[in-house]
Design a protein around this nucleic acid. Structure first.
Length: 360
DNA sequence: GCGTATGATTTTTG
DNA sequence: CAAAAATCATACGC
């Protein structure tokens, strides 16, 4: 829009090369701060060249990407605010520069007037100009700083995904859950698998990673909450296998005190029996040292009316409630079994209020 | 409004 | 460095 004059005072460097450090010297010479501010403003598009029609550009940007619509909308909102900030910044900056120039000429005129009656050394004039410019540039610095602050706040308010987060689409969670429960024995998708999932779900790979991280930890935390979900997705992928496994469990329910075979390690969720065998082999063999949940059969019998139920191989002693099982079945973590053996959470939880960190 | 679910970030850990 | 654990901040259903 407004082609700025660009006749600013660039020369001030040569004006005061050797001035004594009196009070506040943190103005020009050592400005890592100023540099950073300038860089940031530039990077953020606040200080750089004017971009097209401001809000119109934002709208165009919103229309450009087809997939993530809401994201773009939020982004456009952000950009609108940024434009606002930039306009204020430019206006103020111009105002300051103008005032600076005016003031300088004013002082110059005064000095010239005085020079008729009194001899005024050019050094003195220079000094005055230097003072004025320093003053104004410190004001500019303040302006830049507050602008930076505003941008930061805006950024954290709009771009920080933790704030305006959206749940994934139902479809995406379906896909993720399907994968999770059909790989319960080892729910760690490879990079390729993650990419595949990300593609299918229209999310990023790191979002997939986040999802699996959250899912694993939360699943392990209390499996009870996820049982029906697990059953649901298990049934979705393989009903037949589930039946077979259920039959096996029922067979073993009568006796077999310590035979953790049955449906261990998500057998119910595998698409076919061949995979099931593979999985079991690897389970017994190497990947999964010592996760046999011996006494688990009991609980299976309890909740068998829901087909196989969990038996995923992890601890089934729900941490919160039944911490000490009469059978002494120690809850050891599933996927990485080396967890602390005495993982029974300490019962001091409610009114204990042991934490009192009122620091800052 | 409140409690829970959930995605993301930060800190801890191996 | 990746995963776990802890934590944060919002979304969502009631």
């Amino acid at each position: 829009m407004q082609a700025t004059g660009t006749q600013h005072i660039h020369r001030r460097h040569s004006v005061h090369t050797c001035l004594s450090i009196r009070g506040a010297q943190e103005e020009d010479p050592p400005d890592p701060q100023l540099m950073r501010l300038d860089n940031m403003l530039l990077a953020e598009g606040v200080a750089g060249p004017e971009k097209g029609g401001g809000s119109a550009a934002a709208a165009a940007a919103a229309a450009a990407s087809g997939g993530a619509a809401d994201n773009s909308i939020e982004h456009s909102d952000y950009r609108a605010k940024l434009t606002q900030i930039r306009q204020i910044y430019h206006t103020e900056l111009e105002k300051y520069e103008q005032a600076c120039n005016e003031f300088t000429t004013h002082v110059m005129n005064l000095l010239r007037e005085q020079s008729r009656t009194r001899p005024i050394s050019p050094k003195e004039i220079e000094r005055m100009v230097g003072i004025i410019h320093r003053k104004f540039s410190s004001i500019q610095m303040q302006l830049k700083q507050s602008t930076c602050e505003a941008v930061m706040i805006l950024r954290s308010r709009f771009l920080d995904a933790r704030r305006k987060r959206r749940n994934f689409s139902k479809q995406a969670t379906e896909i993720l859950n399907e994968y999770f429960y059909s790989h319960l024995s080892n729910p760690y998708p490879s990079e390729e698998a993650k990419e595949e999932l990300a593609k299918k779900c229209s999310i990023t790979v790191s979002q997939v990673s986040n999802w699996f991280g959250n899912k694993r930890i939360r699943y392990k935390k209390n499996i009870g909450k996820f049982q029906e979900e697990a059953n649901l997705y298990a049934a979705k992928t393989a009903v037949n296998a589930a039946h077979a496994a259920a039959a096996a469990v029922q067979n073993s329910q009568a006796n077999s005190p310590t035979t953790p075979n049955s449906g261990s390690s998500g057998s119910f969720s595998l698409p076919n029996t061949g995979d099931m065998f593979l999985s079991m082999q690897s389970l017994n063999g190497d990947s999964y040292q010592g996760v046999q949940v011996g006494a688990n059969v009991q609980s299976q019998v309890d909740t068998l009316h829901h087909v196989i139920s969990q038996t995923a191989g992890y601890n089934d002693a729900l941490a919160g409630n039944t911490m000490y099982n009469p059978h002494g079945l120690n809850a050891n973590g599933g996927w990485q079994d080396a967890m602390t053996p005495s993982s029974v959470i300490s019962p001091t939880e409610g009114p204990g209020s042991a934490h009192s960190d009122t620091s800052n």
